[in-house]
Amino acid sequence: MQKSRIESWLYPTDRGLYCEPGQFHIDPHLPVDRAVITHGHGDHARSGHGAVLATHETIEIMKVRYGADCAGSFAAANGGQTINGVAVRLVPAGHILGSAQIVLDWQGTRAVVSGDYKRSPDPTCAPFELVPCDLFVTEATFGLPVFRHEPAEREAHRLVASLAANPERTHLLGAYNLGKCQRMIALVRQAGYHRPVYLHGGLRALCDLYVRLGVDLGDLRNVTDSEPAELKGALVLCPPGALSDRWSRRLADPLTCYASGWMRVKGRASQHGVELPLVVSDHCDWPELLRTIEETGAEEIWVTHGREDALVHQIGLMGRRGRALALVGFEDEGD
């Protein structure tokens, strides 16, 4: 494949994607002097960098997860900044609170590094904003045509309906602690569920942060502070890893739920012993990936985390140049 123009100034290194004239990395997985961070998930935001540029929300998330001194210095992105002559703009990615696409303009070419993103609505974060560009760097977490997420509102209604139909069973919902957890709470609130929601200890800090940053989540309580009788028939959230833990034994006849894009495939859902799988994801499904690639108008598409082979093949069918960016360190976040 011929070397593109863009690759002379933006390219993958063993620390992550590097912008040479700007002298910064985007979402590096090893410590660097200067990092621009798309969002707070562990495979994108790591501790130990010198200077970090990110949205205000992402910075707050990093401080909660890694401590206030997890980077040498923080700068919250504003409307637009210039780093060593490269114009850098952070625009909403619609993935989780604070998530941003990094828009880079250099000598008349534009690259958009989207981090993780989705196109469907989410009451806990700003919606994805489309930026036309020459190079679009996309994720491919759900990069197979079998992945089509259900409307999240409908899945939330199924959960609320199940709570009503099974008043004697505690509904234990596994949800990733950053983003999915808060989105699910906001969704059941929208669906008319106003009883207290109980949290596993591992979810508390980030829920509190969301509330502090202005996301209304209603009455939240800790499982550890609650009487077993109070939890009967209640909605309890925990990290996915805690679903089949001994931790759940205190709950009355738990009905295990799991909110994730992986729940689309029965084998994946049964693997987790899930009784009520909810197909809700903070990533694009296949049609959203294709639509976005089309709409950016980008001639060149770089693909990161996930099933790159299928998406790169599809990009070829769409008459564009696709390339699997074998960046290490990105992984499925249990989403």
Partner: peptide, 21 residues
């Protein structure tokens, strides 16, 4: 597309489910 079908079928593991998806 045949390649996308094959990759999907391999991932899902069941023909009826793959087609339904």
């Amino acid at each position: 597309d045949p390649l996308l079908y094959r990759l999907s079928r391999d991932y899902v593991g069941d023909t009826a489910e793959t087609v339904s998806l």
